[in-house]
Design a protein around this nucleic acid. Structure first.
Length: 649
RNA sequence: GCUGUAGUAGCUCAGUGGUAGAGCGCGUCAUUGGUAAUGACGAGGUCGGGAGUUCAAUCCUCCCCUACAGCACCA
């Protein structure tokens, strides 16, 4: 029998007969490792302990202490165990697929009856029984024909389809958890008892399309989360609770920022507090973009379909546009209009007015553009995904040789804005040509190269997101990570050779003849609505002082201080601080609680002593201790904090 | 849009085939207090909309709207 050499992570090599399994290697290294081992990585591939190794390889044996591998195995085995539990309880259920995802797994089932939330407890109970049985996990390699026959005989049509879709004719791996069998790539644990029975939880049931295709059957998906230990599960559930507390819809109500109602689905009624945040942010962005060399414009809301036909949007997005037709009795002539779903075609109209010279380029045009899109009802989510929104939109008309510098300048601009708003780090995704696209391959090659060179030149790391570009051109997407680790795509930078062509934009070059400009679409916040929603969730409502809608409440402790309360408020207002008086006949405890719930960053309490001494008792949101300070000093300090970051000395 | 769940007072929610209840909030009065809820009293709802079954519907059935979770979508 041939000898092979297996190299351990510490560099030591051991000799074995070819065909030895990783489990046997583990047991050979030490008895305890043999017991604790759960899987192995062989030449970079994560495999079962029962997997035979036929040639020289690097090998690492994993135990439950190897978080990454252990989580994968636990979640993967739980997917199988759950599917087995479901089929044991409801034998007429058809199985499909059940992959591992972040924090857990899901499994999609086809069953006539709907699962109910109560069913989850039943399934969980059954799963624990299976785990307690410590059933062996077996694997066999079958050829395709046998596997297909097996699933046909067992009336599992989805599995048949899956096998038929696997390219090539390599043999398939079949796994058994006890008597229950599934087609699977592996790897798995050795027996069901290795899965921690107290570190998983079934979370929810939802519909999901078979193979992610909305034209195909709707299956029932059950989601679960799982970890290697129950403390980790607990920590995860706490995190979810924490996230729920930050929900912008809840905070939006508690802080009296905005509301939404049935009569205007997907549109925001901004209340005074929320609108203060909005306008404060908009004022900031206006200063920033002016400083970055943009000219600001404004364009119509209701635009004839002819323009959308010319731009190509009518064809592609008609169903997602609000169509506006004036009543025939009133209209002088019949016209079909659409609420603008985007600003780009309108900006080209401005560009097209008069002759442009190469000397005018790059022309950076910005608009706080209000757009309306008829988003599918299921897509709406608070103020994060709405039907009426305002983008911090901008289009740069430029020559090809200017793309690189404009891209670099935009990344600087965006980094500076994000930093001011409390996000030090962001990620760049480089999205390339999608399947459905316009333009020639040469043009795509060209523009993708130009954009990639531009990011490289900007010296920022990026991740390739192949096939995710816009239909007209490649793009960069900018992702922020919030305080509890969630990612948000906000900024974008897109190169578009298509729209200037379609809408006939041109400039006169140095050579005296007409040329096509490139159009760069870019946004930093994305939309004010979404970004504010994200800011609320990121800060759990504790917005930075300069953005906080109610910055200071001056609360009287006794009515004797009322006059002084007003004086303090006036002093602060004169310093540009948003201050208000609370002289209600309530106890100070009550006022402190109410304004704390309302996320007011600073409460200044004043009673007899403060009136005497011209001081205020300062209480910062979230802090228990207070400090008594001179009014003048506090006013100066708060004036600095109230200044937007770009205006600070 | 699809699957599922839900909609009762401003908010959070209980409840019932015989036209509704709590806590908070709101109003009035008393209370003048020292950093996350002072007390008493009071007002407030055609039970999401429409149709049907029934002597009788907030409750049962059907349709619609909206929200929530996920999927699909996101110029």
């Amino acid at each position: 029998m041939a000898q092979i050499s297996l190299t351990l992570p510490d560099g030591n090599a051991r000799q074995y007969n070819a065909g030895i399994t990783a489990g046997e290697v583990a047991a050979d290294i030490s008895k305890s490792l043999g017991k604790k081992a759960i899987s192995a990585t062989v030449n970079g591939a994560h495999v079962d302990l029962a997997w035979p190794i036929e040639e020289d390889a690097d090998i690492a044996i994993h135990t439950m202490a190897d978080e990454e591998q252990a989580n994968e195995l636990v979640r993967h085995d739980l997917a199988h165990i759950m599917a087995r539990a479901v089929q044991e309880i409801w034998p007429d259920t058809k199985v499909t697929i059940g992959p591992v995802i972040k924090d857990g797994w899901y499994y999609d089932f086809d069953r006539t009856e709907s699962f109910t939330p109560e069913d989850l407890a039943t399934i969980e109970k059954k799963m624990k029984e299976i785990i307690n049985k410590r059933d062996e996990v077996r694997t066999e390699v079958w050829d395709r024909a046998r596997a297909i026959k097996h699933y046909q005989d067992n009336d599992e049509p989805y599995k048949v389809e899956l096998i038929e879709a696997i390219p090539g004719d390599e043999p398939l791996r079949m796994y058994w958890h006890g008597d229950w069998q599934d087609l699977c790539r592996g790897p798995h644990l050795q027996h069901t008892g290795q899965v921690p029975g107290d570190a998983f939880k079934l979370m929810s049931i939802a519909g999901a399309y078979w193979r992610g295709d909305s034209d195909r059957a709707m299956l029932q998906r059950i989601y679960g989360v799982a970890f290697t230990g129950k403390e980790k599960l607990k920590a995860h559930l706490n995190m979810l609770e924490e996230a729920a507390k930050r929900d912008h819809r809840k905070l939006g109500r508690e802080m009296d920022l905005f509301h939404m109602q049935e009569e205007a689905p997907g549109q925001v009624f901004w209340h005074p507090n929320g609108w203060t945040v909005y306008t404060e942010l908009q004022d900031y962005m206006r200063r920033k973009q002016r400083a970055a060399g943009y000219v600001e414009v404004n364009t119509p809301q209701v635009v004839d379909r002819k323009l959308w036909e010319a731009s190509g949007h009518w064809d592609k997005y008609q169903e997602h546009m609000f169509i506006v037709e004036v009543d025939e009795d009133h209209a002088r002539e019949k016209a079909v209009n659409a609420l603008k779903p985007m600003n780009c075609p309108c900006h080209v109209q401005i560009f097209n007015q008069g002759m442009k010279s190469y000397r005018d380029l790059p022309l950076r045009m910005a608009e706080f553009g209000s757009c309306n899109r008829y988003e599918p009802s299921g897509a709406l989510h608070g103020i994060m995904r709405v039907r009426g929104f305002t983008q911090d939109d901008g289009h740069i008309f430029c020559r090809e040789d200017q793309i690189e510098a404009e891209c670099a300048a935009f990344i600087d601009y965006l980094a500076s804005v994000y930093k001011d708003l409390g996000f030090e780090k962001f990620e760049i995704m480089f999205a390339t040509r999608p399947e459905k696209r316009v333009g020639t391959e040469e043009s795509w090659d060209h523009v993708e190269n130009a954009l990639e060179n531009a990011i490289r030149a900007a010296g920022h790391p990026y991740t390739l997101d192949a096939g995710e570009g816009a239909f007209y051109g490649p793009k960069l997407d900018f992702k922020l990570t919030d305080a509890i680790g969630r990612e948000w795509q906000c900024g974008t930078f897109q190169v578009d050779p298509n729209l200037p062509e379609r809408l006939g934009a041109s400039y006169i070059g140095e050579d005296g003849s007409k040329h096509r400009p490139y159009m760069l679409h870019r946004a930093c916040l994305g939309s004010f609505e979404r970004f504010i929603g994200m800011l609320i969730e990121n800060s759990a409502g504790k917005l930075p002082f300069w953005l906080a809608p109610r910055q200071v409440v001056v609360a009287s402790i006794t009515s004797e201080a009322d006059e002084y309360v007003l004086e303090v408020v006036e002093t602060l207002k004169a310093e540009g601080v948003r201050a208000e008086a609370d002289m209600r006949n309530e106890k100070i405890n009550y006022k402190v609680r109410e304004h704390s719930v309302g996320k007011v960053p600073v409460i200044l309490a004043v009673g007899g002593r403060e009136v005497e001494e011209k001081t205020v008792s300062v209480r910062r949101l979230g802090q228990k201790q207070t400090s008594v300070q001179a009014l003048s000093a506090v006013a100066q300090e708060l004036a600095v904090e109230a200044t937007p970051p770009d205006l600070r000395a």
